[in-house]
Amino acid sequence: KTYTFRVRIVDEETGEEKEIEVTAKSEEEAKKAAEELKKKYPNLKVELE
């Protein structure tokens, strides 16, 4: 079973919002993916929905 999570990304500089879908095998995995995004884009606000 896989879970699909919507991750909302807000670029703090431009105020631009993007939504991406993360497919993960567990909620834990999705959280890790969101953390990776935060590391990659430090000025983005990442929200897991």
Rank of each mutant, 00 (worst) to 15 (best):
E12Q: 11
K38A: 12
V46P: 03
K32Y: 11
E29L: 06
A30E: 00
K32H: 11
P42D: 04
S26G: 05
K40H: 07
L48K: 05
E27F: 15
R6C: 11
A34S: 05
A30T: 01
E16R: 05
Y3D: 01
E36F: 12
K38M: 14
E36T: 08
V7D: 00
E35F: 11
E19L: 15
E21G: 03
E17M: 13
I9Q: 00
E16P: 00
G15S: 02
E21S: 09
A30W: 09
A24T: 05
E17D: 04
V7Q: 00
A30P: 00
R6Y: 12
G15D: 02
A24V: 12
D11K: 01
F5G: 00
V46G: 04
I20T: 02
K1I: 11
K1E: 09
I20K: 01
E35V: 08
K1G: 08
K25C: 14
N43T: 08
P42S: 07
E13D: 09
F5H: 01
V22S: 01
T23N: 07
E47Y: 15
L37N: 01
E19V: 15
F5K: 00
E19W: 15
E12H: 10
E49S: 12
K45A: 05
V46T: 03
Y3I: 04
S26C: 06
K25P: 09
T2F: 13
S26H: 03
L48V: 11
E16T: 07
V46C: 10
T14H: 02
A33Y: 15
R8H: 06
K40A: 08
K32C: 10
K1Q: 09
V10C: 09
I20G: 01
Y3E: 02
I9D: 00
V7C: 06
N43G: 12
E19T: 15
T23S: 10
E47T: 14
K40R: 11
E29Y: 04
E29A: 08
V10E: 02
E47M: 14
T14R: 02
N43M: 07
D11G: 01
V7H: 00
A24E: 03
V10T: 13
G15I: 00
D11F: 03
K38H: 05
I20E: 03
E12M: 14
K18P: 00
E17L: 10
K40M: 13
K32G: 05
V10Y: 14
L48D: 04
V10W: 13
E12R: 10
A30Y: 06
A30V: 06
K39P: 02
T23V: 13
E13I: 13
T23R: 10
E28S: 09
T4W: 12
E47A: 07
K45W: 08
K18H: 14
I20D: 01
R8E: 00
L48H: 06
T14F: 01
V46H: 04
E47N: 08
A30N: 01
E16Q: 07
F5M: 04
T14Y: 01
I20S: 01
K39G: 06
D11C: 09
A24Q: 01
K31Y: 13
K32P: 00
Y41N: 04
E19C: 15
A24I: 03
E28W: 11
K38E: 05
K25T: 13
E16N: 05
E36I: 09
L44E: 03
A24H: 03
L48W: 15
K1P: 10
K45I: 12
A33P: 00
I9P: 00
E47R: 07
T4C: 14
K39V: 08
K1N: 09
